[in-house]
Amino acid sequence: MNTQPVLKSLFLDLNDRTPVARRQRRLAWTQHARHLVQLAFAAFILAGSVAHYLAGENGNTASIDALCPFGGVETMWRLVTSGGQFVSRTHLSNLVLLAGLVVGTLLAGGAFCGWVCPFGAVQDLLNWLRIRLHVKPIEVPARLDAVLRYVRFMVLALVLYQTIVQTKLWFAEFDPYRTLFGLGWLFEYNLLASWPAYAFTLVVLAVSFLIERAWCRYFCPLGSVVSLLGRFSLLRIRREESACKSCQLCNRPCPVRLNVAESRAVSSNGVGCLACVESCPRPGALTVSLAPTWASSLRTVLGHKRS
């Protein structure tokens, strides 16, 4: 079978050996691999939701609430203050997933958002659809973008406050990930009871269609937790200023619009998609290194003290 036409449609002309073509191929393969992993996780969650509904009330399958690391964040306060009681609908599985997220993020940064999160996959799908439909994206001005990025920390604070006060999963009533992947809209559709969740989800999807990864960048409370932990991650993407020509090519494919070309290390707001690294034309300008940024800061401080 001649695969060249298919590969060409994916910008993968294998006969083109120019550096630009090689770079495009590398970028395309990386992003295809990422989307496959995202799809696998999304399919697993969807299959779990279907199984949960088919099993019914007395079934032994996990609900979507039990399979989210954010449930671990939400139940933490109650767990500590009540001596071991969980917020309703959260379980040990939430804590285990949160532990996995913490360990993974401390080692490898925000890869959860780029490679695992099913709602991130939905937003990438919306972006692909927008490109296919030739709809122009909305580019948020840099200064407004910088301010809006703090909103998700406010969302996190609000969700935690409401969960503590109401001792229930308050955010579950709005959470677009839960609304979409929980499949309540398919198996127990109830417009009267669930219209706030449906409306909120539709708004989030519409905004994420026009602004790439808008939910992740501005509103996701779990994303804010990942961002905070990512500051201490062992693996970081760094920019070597002596090798970089500030051509800005690394900024273009970034799904969360980070200014990689002018940073020393890629911000912890990154989703670990590697698009910046794979699109960089300068060898050694963008690399992944094993030392966290806080370690180099510490070395600098200690070096100054010694001298």
């Binding site: 990422r34 992993v37 993974g104 993020t105 080692l107 490898a108 940064g109 890869a111 959860f112 780029g114 490679w115 695992v116 693996l235 993407i237 670990g272 590697l274 690294v277 794979e278 690399t287 992944v288 290194s289 094993l290 030392a291």
Partner: peptide, 13 residues
């Protein structure tokens, strides 16, 4: 120490 970029998703998963 520089490592392969693919260590980011592999290590995380």
């Amino acid at each position: 120490m520089k490592v392969s970029p693919f260590l980011i998703p592999i290590v995380f998963i």
